[in-house]
């Protein structure tokens, strides 16, 4: 049996801060089209791991393969061009730009050169069309002209998603997309992510267990920098070690 090559492979990834091993020999595969949730208690090292995958935090040892290519030491923007898109745990948007321009900025990173100095970018039909499409997919089309800084928190979350989506990534790394959302907004976000599933693989870091079990094809559990279990939702739900370490109080 030949399984398709994973879109993301972490092979024995390690990161120290002083004597503290924040990522401690992490092995993880994300299959193409799969929604893979990464859960774990606070301080388990999820944010550091995302930083390593995105290339903002250098790894001390181990390898990161993106679509089969070794990107362990590649700079962050190069990984984007290989098909990696990410969202941030605390929303990072260009507050002075309209929602549309935020998405168009991301679109222009992957379409044509950005060393163009004279033609106004805001009238670039190709970029705008791509941006509108991505905004529509996340349900934000009507808010395209609003400055990002004036959007509601939920809308900012949707905008971040549109910014990831417009790059047509092979893998989206989403860092707690539900954080700070109300119940209705969370439901809406789950619906959006469900629609996106299949377009790209998703590595979903999330605390909202309802969302995780609603969306994930597989779940990996990170505790103290190590993956202690990995498998389909039902198996994780039943896993004694996971229940003991983490899920016990929440499920």
């Amino acid at each position: 049996m030949t399984a398709p090559r994973p879109i993301l492979q972490l092979q024995g990834l390690v990161k120290h801060y002083g004597r503290l091993r924040v990522s401690d020999d992490v092995w993880l595969d994300v299959a193409p089209g799969e929604t893979h949730a990464l859960i774990g208690p606070n301080g388990a090292g999820k944010t550091t791991l995302i930083g390593q995958i995105a290339g903002e935090i250098p790894s001390d040892s181990g390898r990161i393969l993106l679509d089969g290519a070794d990107v362990t030491v590649e700079r962050p923007h190069r990984r984007v061009h290989r098909g990696l898109a990410r969202s941030f745990q605390i929303t990072r948007l260009i507050g002075g730009f309209s929602a549309l321009e935020n998405v168009a900025l991301c679109a222009q990173a992957l379409e044509g050169s950005s060393f163009r100095f004279l033609a106004p970018a805001s009238r670039d039909a190709g970029l705008n069309a791509a941006a509108i499409a991505a905004l529509a997919e996340t349900g934000l089309a009507e808010r395209a002209d609003i400055p990002a800084g004036r959007l509601s928190h939920g809308e900012k979350r949707q905008l971040e998603l549109a910014m990831a989506l417009v790059a047509r990534p092979k893998l989206m790394v989403l860092d707690e997309p539900m954080a700070g959302l109300g119940k209705a907004e969370t439901q809406a976000m789950i619906a959006v992510l469900r629609r996106l599933a299949g377009q790209a693989a998703i590595l979903l870091v999330e605390h909202d267990m309802h969302a995780v079990f609603a969306l994930a094809d597989r779940i990996s559990v990170l505790v103290e920098g190590r993956i202690i279990a990995s498998g389909p939702p039902d198996a994780i739900r039943a896993d004694a070690a996971v229940r003991a370490a983490y899920l016990g109080e929440e499920v």
Binding site: F88, R92, G95
Partner: peptide, 11 residues
């Protein structure tokens, strides 16, 4: 405005 965001966008 936000250097990290722009790098994460691929620039």
């Amino acid at each position: 405005e936000d250097e990290r965001r722009v790098i994460a966008a691929g620039f």
